[in-house]
Amino acid sequence: MMAISGCGLPRSGPSKKEILSGAVENGGDAHIIFVNNHVNRTANFTPAYGFSNEFLNAGAVGADEIRPGDTLGLMIWENVDDGLLVGLGQSSTQLQQLQVDSQGYIFVPYAGRIRAAGNSPEQLRQVITSRLESQTPDPQVSVTRVAGDGATVSVMGKVFGQGVYPIERPTRTLSSMLAKAGGVNVEPEVAVVTVKRGRESGKVWLTDLYFNPSYDIALRPGDVIMVEEDQRSFTALGALGQQTKVPLGNEQINAIEAVAMVGGLQTQTGDPTGVFVLRDEPAQVASAVLGQPVGGTQRMVYVLDLTRPNGLFLARDFLVRDGDTIYVTEAPYVRWQKILGAITGSAGSINQLENIGN
């Protein structure tokens, strides 16, 4: 009974020996890695949020930029009695309901097909004037937007005011547009802001907009802004104060802090030599840790022995990442106590003894 008793005893998970037996060297599919300074240097990368140069280098958009679909109105004055567009006895003519086509152009008589999209009304006025002044002396042109919002962005997700907002002079940047939408309705520390622009997208922590001004990018027409609550987390199992899923937030958390966040090791049962971090490691990082090239994602089991002279320091320097599982095994003597308790009758019932025998 003593040889098989461990199989039927209640426990929180596999033993240290059982985990180590699953190593690649033993025919398993996981790399068992004892954490040292080399591991901490090569495995401690944090997938960074941020914007590409395309986002960072984009210039501010004019608040009154004309867009395809806008409807424009033109007023043209000519300094002659019988002009190109102005009838005899009149000084001006109006061209209303000029819709900017899908390619961004409008047609103006005697000026031809002119690109309107991307210009402000003032810039378009100058273009039309230049086209007409070679045909009529000193033309005067006025351009107004009759209908259309011009440059707009969409703001969605965890904000108080979802909607479509025009890019105006006070709202040309990401932070100012979020303020225009009423701000976020989640804790700022866990708010992630994603900006989608065409086929490109980038994301940053909300707090980075304030601490890193370069992330407060200039908005472009058609941008989609999504605010979400960060979902990154790790799972804690085994002989810990709690067995639960824990959000990471936007802070870098090391193994010591992660264990402390769930109440620490259980004093009566936790094995400080058996703290494991289970992770699916990308090939690039796994190759650096193992010191040899590997292909594809690798299952890694990092082992932290807190009883070693520098064990606590190594655990303090080991960063926990999204999706990690932290598992603490029971101390070996705990299993012997259970066995002895079952044999001496303190296990609780005959049925439990029968389970141990099975």
Rank of each mutant, 00 (worst) to 15 (best):
V285K: 06
G295I: 08
L265P: 01
V303W: 07
F318S: 06
V294M: 03
V294H: 08
R279D: 03
T325H: 02
Q268W: 07
R308M: 12
G274R: 07
P309R: 03
D271N: 15
I326N: 02
T325C: 02
R316M: 12
V328N: 00
Q268G: 11
G323D: 08
P309L: 01
P272W: 08
L265A: 01
G323Q: 10
L319N: 05
Q268C: 07
S287D: 02
Q268N: 13
N310S: 11
T307Y: 02
D322S: 14
F276C: 02
D324S: 05
G296L: 01
F276I: 04
G311C: 02
P282C: 06
L290C: 08
P282I: 08
N310I: 11
A288K: 13
S287Q: 07
L265T: 01
L312F: 12
Q292N: 06
Q298M: 10
L306V: 08
A315V: 12
G274M: 12
G311K: 01
T297K: 11
L314K: 10
V289M: 10
E281W: 00
L312C: 03
R316V: 03
A315P: 12
A286W: 01
E281V: 09
L319M: 11
E281T: 11
R321H: 09
G291Q: 13
T307W: 06
G311V: 07
L304C: 08
G270P: 04
P293K: 14
D271G: 09
A283R: 06
T307R: 15
L278F: 15
P272Q: 11
D324H: 01
A286H: 03
R308Q: 14
F318T: 04
V277S: 14
G295R: 13
Y302S: 13
Q268Y: 05
D305C: 15
L314P: 04
A286Y: 05
L265C: 04
A288I: 03
G270I: 04
G311L: 06
T273K: 15
Y302E: 10
F318V: 01
R321Y: 07
L290N: 09
L319H: 08
A283P: 04
G270L: 03
Q268T: 14
D317G: 10
G291M: 06
T273E: 15
L290Q: 10
L304N: 11
L290T: 12
G311T: 02
Q292R: 14
R279W: 03
R321M: 10
V294N: 04
P309E: 02
T267V: 01
P282F: 05
V285L: 05
F313S: 11
Q268E: 15
T273M: 12
L306S: 06
G296K: 06
D324F: 00
Y327P: 00
V320A: 10
V285N: 00
T269S: 07
A286I: 04
G274Q: 09
G274N: 10
L314S: 06
A288T: 07
V275K: 05
